[in-house]
Design a protein around this nucleic acid. Sequence first.
RNA 1: GGGCUCGUAGUGAAGUUGGCCUAUCACGCCUCCCUGUCACGGAGGAGAUCGCCGGUUCGAAUCCGGUCGGGCCCGCCA
Length: 589
Amino acid sequence: MTRTLVRDVTMQTGSTVTVSGWVNSRRDHGGLIFIDLRDHTGLVQLVINPEAAAAFALAEGVRDEYVLSAEGIVKERDESLKNPHIATGGIEIVAETLTLLNKSEPLPVSVQDDGQQSGEELRLKYRYLDLRRPKMQERLRQRARMYRVMRDYMDGLDFTEITTPILANSSPEGARDFLVPARLHPGKFYALPQAPQQFKQLLMVGGVARYYQLAAAFRDEDSRADRLYGEFYQLDMEMAFVEDGETIRSLMEPLIKSLVTDFGGKKLLSDVVPRIPYQEAMDRFGSDKPDLRFGMELTDLSDTLRSTEFGVFKNTLENGGVVKAIRVEGGAGLSRSQIDNFTDIAKSEGAGGLAYIKYENGEPVSPIAKFLTADELAAIQERTGATDGDAVFFGTDARVTVNKVLGRLRDAFADHFGLKDPSVIALAWIVDFPFYELDEKSGKLDFGHNPFSMPRGGAAAVEAAEDKLTIVADQYDMVMNGYEICSGGVRNHNPETLYKVFGVLGYDEAYVEAKFGAMINAFKFGAPPHAGCAFGIDRMFMELVGEDNIREVVAFPKNGSGVDAMMQSPSIVDDSQLRDLSLVIKTVE
RNA sequence: GGGCUCGUAGUGAAGUUGGCCUAUCACGCCUCCCUGUCACGGAGGAGAUCGCCGGUUCGAAUCCGGUCGGGCCCGCCA
């Protein structure tokens, strides 16, 4: 007995077929029973007449989500009975035999897309039921298609997919590791890789030249709406004999564009993907991952207001801070309580408050207007381009704080005014990240992004720079609608330069060798220059299919506190397992 | 670690300025009726110690304190 898929049933009109699936719904008319049977290809209506006595008797006891097999003749429906809303609505199967393959208790969550959707907590606990929903089925298939597009593209460019170890080593930089106790080496641990970074660089030394991988990455950091707890997937790639990031960017860009348009069916804001230096992005958008679907660029008014007598601005400017502004079109219509909400957002990012000017009936209306001269008010309006109906919001503080505050507000205003067109994807490369940055708390110099990237100009430039903060790395992120979807860089393949960049932070050669022995060693044996990057697949997919929660695009995600509500992991293990691992559990404060 | 927020039948919601709440509605569930439905329809029924603990009060789903769990955010995280 061969089974026919529901989507193919129409082609079998007039023949006898066998279909199998779940009872999507049952409509019992007393002397006639309809069952909508669902498989992974769609729905089809079974008609069960009393003449098929055994089938009819069984159908009377059938409930939603029972698993059935049905054999019967595919019959074209009378015109008046056709249902244009479903793909198989032109036909129905007149069942001759029904076989009950399995029963089902009433479901704790809905498996229909429409109507009430259960809370996420329940959906995750019963994920196997949630996955029956057509939308979730489609997500899983779409994701597989995206994998295929990426693999086809990389294979076509002669890249080789290589799987790197999951049992790897703890890395001192970056996120918190997941540790795995090593049974054969009591007291020692593997770590799950935060990224295949070191392995892929070693592949370059190994002569692979063009590597990629759809790689699992593991990080034990708290989750967010756009950040999974624990594990996620990257399109990780690396390429030898590349000395500038532009080579990588222009190599990967067509793939992403095609994912946006061909795969995602979205419009690109611009076919030219801008390259925006990090500092410029911070100054113009207040973010290193700006959403470019809308404008609202920040205006620096520090020079304009250099001689103001308004105390708040004056003090900040005298202390080396800045005054910047953001013009919000239509912002004059914001209510007091709405502005209070934006003020709270500003404060959460470190602002003391949120000054603003509304432009109504040709007049600047503002609590601070009386502290500003007419010339200053005119200059503010001219510089920001504000017109009637707009509002201008000010940030005044140290430059980094102001950028952060206004960047966050820019995003919040865009949400409020609905400026994020879901059918449009705006891409950008953020380039030239600072190699070093100042740690805010300690005030000490630290690596900005990744210590393994090449400082522009190499060791000589590091040596020569008086202010180490001015050293730039050939390091780049790709941004998609305000989400960072890729990070990469030209790597430092030179042992001497590696020692140098660590030396600036006070680490000696012995430290570097202890921490990154394999890589340093490898680099002594003819390491080619190389560069690469890694795209966050889950996050990219989420944006392409228009979800705003990343758990929606993963089959079995953990919840926000790292618990798999379905499998109940993590869990307690047997004492014998701990003994094997030479471990004793002792809870510490 | 911190901030905000949510927790009411199987599911989704209403009620939350204390009292006609003996907690409302929809879906689902159970029983019965129904031969053209496709959100089938009709009649009836069951199902909730309002997350948990404690307090205030004559009286608590409602107020207070604590606690547990979820979500969003900050920290953290390429």
